[in-house]
């Protein structure tokens, strides 16, 4: 990318452009929705994992995403001064962000939710909103209110040249990374002992306790896994958009929450489907109708789907415990 940022359209492509304009445009929008949707899905997984286990909507989750982006920025800055190569910086910064955010997620649960485990459901919800506001202001005061430039760490990926109108290097990286993360999560939940324990706790916490599963540890684990995924999303988007700010977690968190509900909150494939559906719907709205309605249509879609499937696209109907 650094080599030729202003490249005009390649000559070979112009003909295809004229003939298949609408198909081409459709595919472009589809992929741009896919990129955006996979980020929503990464963050939505955190919401859905936590909800599945303790039926709490962790509203501070968007802030964990933001913290991930900030951590990556700080680490990348330090490594950049030390003269590391760009690709290496991206990997190290992403790992640092994942570890640091996971630590935040772990602490968040211990500080804000664990003491309220027996309390009425409204209390942890308020605590979550409080933590969200706290974390935002913490970053605002400890760092800055300004938008900070995020270094370009993505490799050039020349082989993408022939599809660059559909997908650039960062879109490609976002797609690949989020797909890998989701596959890894699925394998973890399905085939590991800890994953099994997580599923057991989600199904029936009391029963799991009786069978010797340490529910506290499983809840901590859930927060760690969810936060790590959000941090990955934060790093990917920060390097895609090229900037970071204390407030970026709010809208992304809200959209991801919508995606989780859309897909069926508590369901892991649901979060992925919800994220992708939301992202693609937004992209088509912008592309075919108007960017003015991007957010409005996303939420209209949510309401529409919830009318017909109150538990979301892949959610299972179950009796609500209150």
């Amino acid at each position: 990318m650094a080599s030729a940022p202003f490249c005009p359209l390649r000559p070979g492509r112009t003909a295809a452009h004229k003939n298949g304009m609408d198909v081409q445009y459709f595919i472009e929008l589809f992929f741009s929705g896919l990129t955006r949707g996979s980020i929503y899905a990464l963050i939505a997984l955190g919401y859905t994992l936590v909800y599945g286990i303790i039926e709490l909507i962790n509203f501070a989750h968007g802030e964990i995403y933001m913290l991930g982006a900030f951590t990556a920025l700080l680490v990348a800055g330090v490594l950049g001064i030390m003269g590391f190569p760009a690709g290496g910086i991206l990997v190290v910064a992403a790992l640092a962000a994942i570890i640091w955010s996971a630590a935040y997620g772990f602490t968040l649960e211990k500080v804000a939710y664990k003491p309220l485990r027996g309390a009425p459901r409204l209390s942890p919800l308020i605590s979550a909103i409080g933590m969200s506001i706290f974390l935002q202001n913490y970053v605002l005061l400890a760092q800055t209110s300004e938008y900070l430039p995020f270094p370009r760490l993505l490799p050039d990926m020349e082989f993408l040249d022939y599809i660059d109108n559909i997908m650039g290097p960062s879109d490609f990286l976002i797609l690949v990374c989020s797909m890998l993360a989701m596959v890894a999560l699925t394998l973890f939940i399905r085939y590991t002992k800890m994953g099994k324990a997580m599923r057991a706790t989600a199904q029936n916490r009391k029963m799991a306790l009786l069978l010797g599963i340490n529910a506290d540890r499983i809840i901590s684990l859930t927060f760690i896994v969810g936060s790590a995924l959000a941090a990955l999303g934060g790093v990917l988007i920060a390097s895609h958009m090229g900037q970071v700010n204390f407030s970026i977690g709010f809208l992304a968190g809200l959209k991801a929450f919508t995606a989780a509900v859309l897909g069926g909150i508590g369901s892991i494939p649901g979060a992925v489907v919800g994220g992708l559906v939301l992202g693609i719907a937004e992209s088509f709205t912008t592309g075919y109708i108007s960017g003015n309605y991007e957010d409005a249509l996303a939420f209209a879609l949510l309401i529409f789907i919830l009318i017909f499937r109150p538990d979301g696209i892949l959610g299972k109907a179950k009796v609500q415990k209150v």
Partner: peptide
Amino acid sequence: FEAVTPDAVDFSSVVRKLRR
């Protein structure tokens, strides 16, 4: 003539529309 959401995670849809 339209709006973009400043905090959106991605602007590629609107950029593709712009190219078109």
